[in-house]
């Protein structure tokens, strides 16, 4: 491989280099990561189930109990982000702490807290939605599109 040819858009060098990189690239410890995600994700959902059962036992409807559970889980995710614990959890659990709704709360608090120094409107107010914004946008688009199809059929 000629190093002198390692210029911009030198496809030949780039392809060979990519191969060389694949040989030394550290592989993610997949099994360890999957176990971590499974256990932590499972535990967070189990905590959710505890609250769900508690609210059901208070004679709330299934729907209200779910909503209350969501609210509590979001509160916990936000609190542990504020306490500086959630990023440590995420470093180990990966998707196990990102995918549950607590991870959604984390994605709201983390940028909002960090951009507080840029003010309450353009810092906290705007950055709150850096990650949550796209989630809500695409969630709403999905529900409108599927809803429209549902309306056409029925």
């Amino acid at each position: 491989m000629s190093l002198n040819d390692s210029g911009y858009k030198n496809q030949q060098f780039n392809q060979r280099y990519q191969k060389m990189y694949e040989q030394v690239k550290p592989k993610p410890p997949l099994v360890q990561n999957l176990v971590g995600a499974f256990v932590v994700g499972g535990l967070i959902c189990t905590v959710g189930q505890v609250f769900q059962n508690y609210f059901l036992a208070m004679n709330l409807s299934v729907k209200s109990a779910s909503a209350m559970t969501t609210a509590v889980m979001i509160f916990l995710g936000a609190l542990f982000t504020g306490l500086g614990v959630y990023d440590e959890l995420g470093r180990r659990a990966g998707a196990g702490s990102t995918v549950p709704i607590t991870g959604f709360a984390n994605s709201i608090v983390a940028p909002a807290m960090e951009f507080k120094r840029e003010g309450y409107v353009l810092g906290v107010g705007a950055k709150l939605f850096v990650i949550a914004g796209p989630v809500i946008v695409y969630g709403l688009l999905t529900s409108v599109v599927t809803g429209f199809i549902y309306w056409l059929i029925h």
Partner: peptide, 30 residues
Amino acid sequence: GIFSGALKGAAVGITVAVVFGFTMAVLFNP
């Protein structure tokens, strides 16, 4: 309903997320 349903169902989640997100951001520092 195509346009009103989604947010009605997610009202609690989104409002709670914004309120606690804001509160925690104000209370804590990174």
